[in-house]
Nucleic acid binder design. Structure first.
Lengths: 357, 357
DNA sequence: CTGAAAGCGCTTACAG
DNA sequence: CTGAAAGCGCTTACAG
């Protein structure tokens, strides 16, 4: 028994009836997919408006095979660098009529798999992902799911990091360049014992951060000391911990590099708690140049990447490809690497003494 | 002409054929909506799996009138407080089988309207929103859109802020309590000239921040000085600016309150640039207790609200109501106000001298 | 426990 | 410029 008080949603059919035309005509008038006489169109629009018509996107999606939804899969939204990328993605997508389905993986491959599966089920028109989740062996664990996107002709674009051993479109940040820029800045200031509070090692790319660090030292004739290379988790809390352990170990260093600003603030805090002055006692560097980097305790020297623009570019590439009905052959339709700029602030300075020992 | 190389998506119908049963049985087996003999079920699941079946949620949504999507409308995702709420929402939603459609309004009522409209069109099953967008006259501008959600029996829950003059469910942070806690902490430290770098005034609630500030002063017998109440935008940059202008004006104050941590870091920076020590010269307070608050230049005294839990609660209320098929009568099915805890860190201290003049 | 069939609200060839 | 009709892939009464 249908309840009288539940107002049924108005459909295209209702407008058609009211306007005395077919539902096809209403659809064409509303979407502009085909010419409709000016009179009829105006009448239809007026009626749609007066009836409070709200198109049903599910139905449209089912029939037209496009959902007008983009998926974004990210490891951690609390990292302000990713938050800014989301901003860029959301606003650009909205301007083009797309909505954003947001998935947070917490850097867990199984979570990423579950989310990719759901994104497939919801029929997103395109996928942007930060594919940081890697297995311990360094390979990317979810290639089979990505292939499912490919089979459906759903374009996929990796952002920030590329996907290991899988040729997809990507807009990556040149971590090699950035790390090298930062390292050489420190070396130029006279630092020779530079600690690197790095990411989990299995996530490091072949020609990535570690390579840049090594090359910079090598180029300056500074021997590499493995003791200075410390593995840390991707949060300020872990950077804080690991910095403390490094100080406890008695290993000498005059500068500390962090793989992102988010972690660098954790490091800064530990140094302060141990009574060390930045940059007088230790120079500190971040990576990314998030909004907060210049508001830090000591404004951070860092490598700047245009986070917001990264998100905007990703959406542009995706939507352009969607509107082109591009041939599915070139999975890697976009291969961009964004270069950083070195931003020197107060957290770095010339060497004074050496820390530890 | 259908291309041979395009592999058609496998449908329930294909599984049914392979298994020699009806598509209804496949649907029941997959969703568990009705009993299916153990044998048949097992066979169906095996076939679905081997065929790489991916359910089409658009079709299911259209028929069953539930999209399994929740909408979240937020003013600014770069504010870490909101980023943390998103975390709570996303993980809780995912655990219950819902995806998240994220909309960022930038505190613009027109943008909010556009996004609400799209959320309606996409048929979200529930809506969580931070309804900060208000018109200049202090009323909430998008009530008519919210009524459209109500007509569809789509539950709506406001988070952080309530919706002015519109009875919806809500999980708000008690800004009155928080502000009062912070103000009285400063008063107890001997401060009498407390600047308040407030939000845009038209966004202030009746029994909100300003009332708490006034009451705290009043209670302590301190006269209110309107010069100390400064209107600022909701970003660190604007807080930075306005703090500078306040210093330039020569108005004396020994403490500065900010309406959130995000803005407080902007204030801290300006104070540092002017050579003022915190808390020796000026005490500073934030609001929210975001992750970064304790990593600040000077760790912030602030009022802590459980951001992540807020998001989790909102999703729980929403999904519980959805599964209950609750009567639509009580639009305000949830009326929770979360109380803060005062977190005292290094940014506040006893009065020394007075600033300015 | 199972099946045949209607229908969710659109879009889009097909025909005029 | 317009209409009649098929169909997207599901779910769900209805009937047995």
């Amino acid at each position: 028994m249908p309840r009288k008080d539940i107002k049924q949603a108005v459909r295209i059919q209702d407008i058609a009836q009211e306007a005395g035309v077919s539902s096809a005509t209403v659809s064409y008038a509303l979407c502009g997919t085909r010419g409709v006489s000016a009179d009829t169109r105006k009448r239809i629009l007026r009626i749609a408006n007066s009836l409070g018509y709200i198109p049903n996107r599910q139905a449209a999606a089912l029939r037209a095979r496009r959902s007008m939804i983009l998926g974004f899969l990210v490891t951690d939204i609390k990292n302000p660098f990713f938050a800014e990328i989301v901003c860029g993605i959301e606003s650009t997508a909205a301007a083009r009529g797309y909505r954003l389905m947001l998935c947070v993986t917490g850097d867990d491959p199984r979570d990423e798999a579950r989310h990719l599966q759901m994104l497939l089920e919801h029929g997103v028109d395109g996928l942007i992902l930060v594919p940081i989740a890697r297995s311990q062996d360094g390979t990317y664990p979810n290639t089979s799911l990505l292939r499912a996107f490919h089979r459906r002709r759903t374009p996929v674009i990796a952002v920030v990091d590329a996907i290991k051993d899988h040729p997809t479109a990507r807009i990556t940040t040149s971590v090699y360049e950035g790390t090298r820029l930062v390292a050489e800045h420190l070396i130029a200031l006279g630092h020779r014992r530079i600690a690197y509070l790095s990411q989990p090692f299995h996530r490091i790319q072949k020609f990535g951060r570690h390579a840049a660090y090594h090359d910079a030292l090598n180029h300056a004739g500074i021997p590499f000391d493995p003791e200075l290379m410390v593995e840390a988790g991707l949060t300020p809390d872990d950077a804080y911990e690991k910095t403390g352990q490094l100080l406890d170990s008695g290993i000498r260093f005059t500068a500390a590099m962090y793989p992102n600003d988010y972690m660098a603030v954790g490091g800064l805090r530990m140094l302060r708690e141990r009574g060390l002055r930045v940059p007088d006692d230790v120079s500190v560097t971040g990576f990314d140049d998030v909004e907060w980097a210049r508001f830090c305790e000591v404004p951070l020297t860092t490598a700047r990447f245009p986070a917001r623009a990264l998100g905007e570019m990703a959406v542009r590439e995706l939507t352009e490809r969607l509107s082109r009905h591009a041939p599915p052959e070139d999975e890697a339709f976009c291969q961009i690497s964004v270069s950083p700029t070195l931003v020197v602030r107060r957290s770095t300075g010339p060497v004074a003494g050496e820390l530890g020992a």
